[in-house]
């Protein structure tokens, strides 16, 4: 995997690790951006990892673009020698699949969809070869996911499922983007899941909703008091299906400040994962649900 370097105007260096999405490309992006951030390079103002690429914002008055380019290429060479382990968090995110709110919204925008005759999740199930929606939900919420990018808008996580490519779910985006998406919608586009952190426009298929806020500019939500954005690139997520009753209870607990997300520290090893995906994922679940 050799990075492609290109400048985004005079203030950004854009680095494509790979054209295609893969955990390997994501890990390279994460490794280089972590080294760069820790190096505190004079003139580098922001380091933004993405799925299979990353971007560096710099001040050309403080570091010449050519000099920065050379430095990052050196780091790329070093990063390939770093080990494949990542100390991170694993988080359980409850999801109410096929909820009434995303259903109401998707019905309003049916004429913008590839298959106006079915719901988003029915469409996704069918084109991915599942027997029915229940099987689809089992696959979506079975194996865990990597937060491979945080962005688009405030604190929105893109997630990539930790399975081999044959088991990856893939769906197209809406033909034309919606002008509305409920806050906390669990969406899907390409090979990525996402959680819409705020209400707004969107083109991803809508599968459900989580009662767990992930962005709070007021910082009132108990677990967002320290910082308003919940996710970081490299977090691991396990979707946990819930019904209406559990959804309402969780929502109430969030409102009362009594909800604490299930979060555990974990070490992920990419080599171990590639050697035995299911066993690695099972070990991650043990850590998450140990108590």
């Amino acid at each position: 995997m050799t990075c492609r370097y290109t400048f985004g105007g005079d203030e950004h260096l854009f680095v494509e690790v790979d054209e295609a999405m893969s955990l390997e490309a994501f890990f390279v992006s994460l490794a280089i951006t972590n080294i760069l951030r820790d190096a505190k390079v004079e003139g580098v103002t922001e380091v933004c990892p993405a799925n299979a690429s990353f971007q560096i914002k710099f001040d050309p008055d403080r570091i010449h673009p050519t000099r920065l380019l050379g430095m990052v290429k050196e780091i790329e060479a070093d990063a390939s020698r770093t080990d494949s382990r990542l100390d991170t968090r694993i988080i359980e995110i409850p999801v109410y699949y096929q909820d009434p709110w995303t259903h109401g919204t998707l019905m309003r925008f049916r004429e913008r969809h590839q298959d106006p005759g079915s719901t988003d999740i029915e469409f996704a199930s069918r084109i991915n070869g599942f027997e029915g929606v229940d099987d689809f939900v089992a696959a979506h919420s079975g194996a865990p996911w990597f937060v491979s990018m945080v962005g688009f808008v405030s604190g929105l996580p893109f997630l990539y499922q930790m399975v081999d490519r044959a088991r990856q779910i893939e769906v197209p985006k809406y033909l034309r983007p919606r002008t509305d998406t409920p806050k906390l919608t669990v969406g899907y586009g390409g090979c990525f899941s996402c959680i819409y952190s705020v209400r707004g426009a969107g083109g991803y298929q809508m599968f459900g909703i989580t009662p767990m806020p992930i962005y709070d500019p007021e910082q009132q939500v108990s677990y967002l008091k320290d910082f308003m954005v919940f996710f970081r690139p490299g977090d691991i997520v396990k979707w946990s299906p819930m019904d209406r009753e559990a959804y309402d209870q969780t929502l109430e607990a969030v409102t009362n400040g009594q909800f604490e997300p299930r979060v555990r520290r974990v070490t992920f090893d990419l080599d171990e994962f590639n050697a035995d995906i299911d066993r690695t994922n099972a070990r991650l679940m043990e850590v998450l649900y140990a108590d």
Partner: peptide
């Protein structure tokens, strides 16, 4: 089209957008 990018030729695997891009 590379895996993860989406089917439209204008699609890429979701990446960062520079200001002014």
């Amino acid at each position: 089209q590379p895996f993860g990018a989406g089917s439209d030729p204008s699609n890429i695997t979701d990446a960062c957008y520079p200001y002014g891009s």
